[in-house]
């Protein structure tokens, strides 16, 4: 029998994915699934995050137009930064999320430009920088909204005193 928490989690993450895909359609160049990875690491633990990461990697690679590799590097570096940063910052602080957003904002042009160069594709550098800035701005905002909306029954963290 499937535990009810798993069903709620499945529904919640499906809704989050659908909303993010619609927002991706509206704001191209920005990954709104990335805050979900961090939220999942904070709330769900490793196994569910791996599944979500794999599914979302396929979504961002499939809807995009670069050769495969962006998603793996993108989420790989995000998870590494989160795990490293957790030892220095309070894992759920807004400052940490803002710093992660800034790091991702800087990372986006680097990965895209590297992959495009490897595939001998021309990409607009100025637009990449703008997308990076948007990524940096959106990341903490989306994380805060997702965190507020996350179902209480799925939470595994302890509230601040």
């Amino acid at each position: 029998m499937f535990p009810s928490t798993n069903i709620v989690a499945l529904l919640w993450w499906s809704a989050y994915t659908a909303a993010a895909i619609w927002l991706h359609r509206t704001v191209p160049g920005v990954d709104l699934l990335a805050p979900g990875i961090v939220l999942s690491l904070q709330e769900d633990g490793g196994r569910r995050t791996v599944w979500l990461g794999l599914a979302w990697m396929l979504i961002i690679e499939g809807t995009g137009n670069l050769p495969f590799g962006y998603g793996l590097a993108w989420y790989g570096v995000l998870v590494a930064l989160f795990l490293l940063g957790r030892s220095v910052f309070e894992a759920r602080s807004l400052v940490f999320m803002a710093l992660l957003g800034l790091a991702l904002g800087a990372l986006h042009p680097v990965i895209t430009h590297s992959l495009a160069s490897l595939a001998e594709l021309t990409v607009d550098g100025r637009r990449l920088l703008l997308e990076g800035a948007l990524q940096a701005a959106f990341f903490p905002i989306v994380w805060v909204i997702a965190d507020k909306c996350y179902p209480r029954m799925l939470r595994q963290d302890v509230k601040h005193l």
């Binding site: 191209p28 809807t63 995009g64 137009n65 670069l66 607009d124």
Partner: peptide, 15 residues
């Protein structure tokens, strides 16, 4: 269905 979308939508495309 959509124009350029997602973080890897660096080329001018539509779906």
């Amino acid at each position: 269905v959509a124009h350029r979308m997602g973080p890897t939508g660096s080329l001018a495309t539509l779906a």
